[in-house]
Computed example of a mutant assay.
Amino acid sequence: MKKIIITGALGQIGTELVVKCRELYGTDNVLATDINEPEEGSEVAKGPFQILDVTDREKMFKTVEEFGADTMMHMAALLSAVAEKRPMFAWDLNMGGLMNALETAREYDLQFFTPSSIGSFGNSTPKVNTPQVTIQRPSTMYGVNKVAGELLCQYYFEKFGVDTRSVRFPGLISYVKEPGGGTTDYAVEIYFQAVREGKYASFIDKGTYMDMMFMDDAINAIIKLMEADGGKLIHRNAYNLSGMSIEPEMVKEAIQEYYPDFELTYDVDPDRQGIADTWPDNLDVSCARAEWGFNPEFDLDRMTKTMLDAIEKQEGKQK
């Protein structure tokens, strides 16, 4: 990777991916794009940026050609809960944008990354130690998009030789950018509310286990996969990833180590709970470990301390 274009650069993953790639490869070698302008003074705005609607294929071609990119990281997508409320828009953006990105990668011989998700699984998928290769019959538009995306990426690799790579991300937890419409968002909101209010009402019910990962581990996983020897990648589209399998009471107990009076209640959202109930409890990540050395560094305790310390600093608060 020498010159990288990142779509959806203002999203939860894209924001931090841009910063990390600029640290590693040089600010001028990473072009951030999004349909919206970045906030003045933000990290994304401190380097090359261009407005790009991923549903506009001609503009995508032109942007890649003018920048001279050799790598595309396609992050632009509508998340699970929002996609379920706007299924037609989700299809047009998630699938139309991906097709345009893959065509761009084929036309300009780009190395290509786009994330899949645990949303690609469904009720018929084994929920415990979910295998790398297993039945995928999701019941949401987001999940359908992700399964189709995995298959499309594999098709472009096998048919056209495009170096496509992907991972199935679990819920991602970060203090840099608050979430925007995902089923696992409770695991981010709970930390912000612990600092701000000392209490949180979870929209996901107790006992609902889902895979999660701290954002630093997720960003490092993207970089590591993209730099891996392609000849060793068997399951390139897409690898199961996870840092931990947790449910809300576990997060509460971790927070109470630092905020003993923190209170967790429940106001369950039937829509997002219904989505969560179709997802695995925990994933088998052995293929990612074996094929390219996936090795997350953050467990629940370390992540909790990091999240609380960072949010306190941002909020200007001390315990």
Rank of each mutant, 00 (worst) to 15 (best):
K2W: 02
I4W: 08
A9R: 11
A9H: 12
L10T: 03
I13S: 09
I13Y: 10
T15D: 11
C21K: 07
R22T: 08
L24Y: 01
V30W: 12
L31R: 04
L31Q: 07
A32K: 06
I35P: 02
E37T: 14
P38L: 13
E39K: 12
A45T: 12
A45E: 08
G47L: 14
D53I: 09
T55A: 05
E58G: 07
F61I: 08
V64P: 08
V64L: 10
E65P: 03
E66H: 03
A69N: 13
D70A: 11
T71R: 11
M73P: 01
A77V: 14
L79K: 00
S80Q: 02
A81L: 10
R86L: 09
P87A: 07
A90T: 03
D92R: 09
L93F: 13
M95R: 12
R106M: 08
E107Q: 14
D109F: 04
F112H: 09
F113Y: 15
I118E: 02
F121C: 11
G122T: 10
G122H: 08
V128K: 14
P131I: 12
P131N: 09
T134K: 02
V144N: 04
V147R: 02
V147H: 05
A148E: 04
G149F: 01
C153S: 11
Y156L: 01
Y156M: 06
E158N: 11
E158V: 11
K159V: 14
D163E: 11
F169M: 14
F169Y: 14
P170K: 03
G171C: 01
L172N: 04
I173W: 00
I173V: 14
S174E: 01
G182W: 00
T184P: 00
T184A: 08
D185V: 00
A194R: 07
V195F: 07
G198P: 05
K199W: 03
F203H: 12
F203C: 06
G207C: 04
D211V: 00
M212D: 01
N220I: 00
L225Q: 05
M226D: 10
A228F: 02
K232G: 10
L233F: 13
I234E: 13
H235Q: 08
A238T: 07
L241M: 12
S245C: 05
P248T: 01
P248L: 02
V251E: 07
K252H: 06
E253V: 10
I255T: 07
P260M: 04
Y266S: 08
V268L: 02
D269V: 00
P270A: 08
Q273K: 03
G274A: 10
I275W: 01
T278D: 11
T278Y: 00
P280S: 12
D284L: 04
D284W: 03
V285G: 02
V285D: 11
V285L: 06
S286G: 10
S286W: 05
C287P: 05
E291D: 13
W292D: 09
N295H: 15
P296N: 09
P296D: 06
M303A: 08
M303G: 15
T306N: 12
L308S: 05
A310K: 13
E312P: 01
Q314W: 07
K319W: 14
